[in-house]
Design a protein around this nucleic acid. Structure first.
Length: 593
DNA sequence: CTTTAGACTTGGAAAAATTTTA
DNA sequence: TAAAATTTTTCCAAGTCTAAAG
């Protein structure tokens, strides 16, 4: 079978000496022992050596014939001012630049960096003409695309060299891939949703901004010539290699390992083991919060209703956010009265809660759910005498909730419910949808549908791809063509059969067989196309990636592949297989989440 | 208790690479 | 063999959650 081959090849070609011995791999007993051992003192590594971040190239001034115009007249800008102008110019045909907040923030920050003379002249953004600069970059892009094969090859080799030099580190004796080894280039901040800081200037990161973390005895990375690091530290209780503070949100950014690394892989595994432990106690926890719906303490009731939402609807915890600093989004604990509507009866259902709010990344969550009567009653109570802008759960926050969860199960937090419910849903859906008689394409449709059920649960949405309609049409054209071919093949078969009927000779018989084969093949191809079309249509606005990468225990998928003879390559690409190497290595077909 | 800092995971869009099609 | 379509990778923002400080 295919998977056996794949597994043994992997075992031979890519030894993974870091995997825990077989005895500890299965069953929760072995794993929990391993977890405790790891988390005891918070030490993450013994040895860490790397080259430091790769700094993005410095700004190259525009050629003299590319000009900026103010109030219709060309104006030569200082280098610093010009650089920031190019950030805006590059975005000219993006929707961002039409937004007032974006424009205001940009202009404010831009003016701060101007020379006094420039400040005197450049007073209004609407008198700035970036179009020539914009065109320059568009052309430059085109030119890059039009490069010859050899030139492109050369560029690729240069990039590979940088990757080779800066893209890896040594961690406890193993060469590991780094996730993001380049500093982020300067530019204009693009928040998501209605972000109050959109358009602000994101400054260039210099070595003087960067803290290096590595082991004392390692070769300490050299800062670029003429520069020095902000600090070099030797902290083995954290996993980052370098960090800096980003100026727009004043938050830390890190350089960390790639998901394929041992460190990340073990953490990932651990995450799913925690979720599996929740499986053992979730019934008890559910009984508990249902009982708490009737508690005398308001705080307990709120906690119980919130936990119910988190469990049933896979809502995020919902930390508090600093008002005015970020887009106005919420999660469970930060829901406000205005985010839900109560319908005693709706569309033949009782006790319906209508959710409508912006969640992470300003993705809208809209859902109508029929809930148990005590939940409904509690919600009415929580909303009583409150304004739309008031907190629904005024006695609750994520810290309180997580403290409570920690008491119910070691390592339990709100997000574990998302992981648990996502993974268990995949497992159940796979069980319900997979037909062993299907061919691989059919099984993959079932897999995608199971995956989709999870994405819908977690509200993982994407905007419909710009080319969706067209590509759907193309597929339909293909299907129609295939149908025609099929019809023709049917006629030909009939003709061949008639001929055989007449002649009864061997040649005619062989021809019948040939036509039958062709017909079969065409039928299969048509079925495959239909499956493709269904899958595509159903996936129009659903993003599968996040759940696949972050919520679904890969062992469920791998076991499913093995059980039904689907090559792992069909569901996980190279990157994903690297990330899930730990799971591919340890999972057999009867793994149960 | 509240606030803040820090570290790490999760998220969709966009860019880049690859494959398919005409 | 170009260009269109699709898949993969990169990007970096935005969450979660813990710990320390006030």
């Amino acid at each position: 079978m295919y998977w056996r081959l794949a597994t043994s090849m992997l075992g031979r070609g890519v030894p993974r000496p870091w995997l825990v011995p077989t005895g500890l791999r299965t069953g929760s007993v072995g794993c929990s022992r391993w977890e405790e051992e790891k988390s005891a003192d918070g030490v993450k590594w013994k040895q860490l050596e790397h080259r430091g971040p790769y700094f993005v190239p410095l700004y190259e001034p525009l050629p003299d014939d590319v000009q900026f115009y103010y109030d219709g007249k060309p104006l030569k800008l200082s280098v610093a001012t010009e650089e920031i102008a190019t950030f805006y110019a590059k975005m000219l045909d993006h929707e961002y630049t039409t937004k007032e907040i974006f424009q205001t923030n940009f202009f404010n920050d831009w003016r701060k960096e101007m020379t006094p003379q420039e400040q005197k002249i450049i007073k209004h953004l609407d008198k700035c003409d970036f179009r020539e600069i914009h065109k320059y970059f568009v052309d430059k892009n085109e030119a890059r695309k039009a490069l010859s094969k050899e030139e492109k090859q050369k560029l690729k080799e240069e990039a590979d060299k940088i990757q080779e030099e800066y893209g890896y580190c040594i961690l406890d004796g193993h060469r590991e891939k780094i996730g993001n080894f380049k500093t982020e280039p300067p530019g204009l901040f693009r928040g998501r949703g209605d972000h109050p800081k959109m358009g602000m200037l994101k400054k260039r990161i210099m070595p003087e901004d960067v803290i290096i973390n590595c082991s004392k005895d390692s070769k300490i990375p050299e800062p670029p010539v003429g520069h020095k690091w902000k600090e070099v530290r030797f902290d083995n209780t954290v996993t980052w290699l370098a960090s800096w503070t980003e100026n727009v949100q004043n938050s830390l950014k890190y350089i960390m390992l790639n998901p394929s690394s041992k460190l990340k892989g073990e953490k990932d595994w651990q995450k799913y083991e925690v979720a599996r432990r929740l499986k053992d106690v979730v019934h008890k926890i559910r009984a508990q919060y249902q009982a708490d719906w009737k508690s005398k303490e308001m705080k307990k009731r709120q906690r119980a209703v919130a936990l119910y939402f988190i469990d049933k609807l896979a809502l995020r915890a919902g930390n508090e956010k600093e008002e005015g600093e970020t887009a106005d989004t919420v999660g469970c604990c930060s829901l406000r009265v205005e985010h839900i509507k109560l319908h005693p009866k709706l569309d033949g259902q009782e006790h319906v809660v209508e959710f409508d709010f912006l969640g992470k990344d300003s993705i809208r969550y809209y859902n109508k759910v029929s809930v148990e009567k005590p939940v409904f009653k509690n919600l009415q109570l929580f909303m009583k005498n409150k304004d739309p802008g008031d907190d629904l759960f005024d006695r609750l926050n994520t810290v309180i909730l997580n403290k409570h969860l920690q008491n119910l199960m070691n390592g339990l937090t709100a997000k574990v419910f998302r992981t648990y419910n996502a993974s268990i849903t995949l497992q159940e859906q796979l069980k319900a949808l997979t037909n062993p008689e299907d061919n691989v394409a059919g099984k993959l449709l079932s897999y995608n549908r199971a995956n989709r059920a999870v994405a819908i649960l977690c509200n993982h949405q994407r905007s419909t791809p710009k080319t969706f309609e067209k590509s759907m049409q193309n597929l339909q054209t293909k299907i129609d063509a295939k149908k025609q071919q099929l019809e023709k093949a049917e006629q030909e078969l009939k003709k061949a059969e008639d001929e055989f009927e007449d002649t009864k000779d061997a040649k005619a018989e062989a021809n019948v067989q040939k036509k039958k084969k062709l017909l079969e093949r065409l039928k299969e191809q048509l079925a495959k196309l239909n499956v493709q079309a269904t899958d595509k249509e159903e996936n129009k606005q659903i993003a599968l990636g996040t759940s696949k990468l972050n919520y679904l225990d890969p062992r469920i998928s791998i076991a499913w592949c093995k059980k039904f003879g689907v090559p792992i390559e069909k569901i996980y690409n190279k990157t994903q297989r690297a990330k899930f190497a730990w799971a591919i290595d340890m999972t057999d077909e009867d793994f149960e989440f």
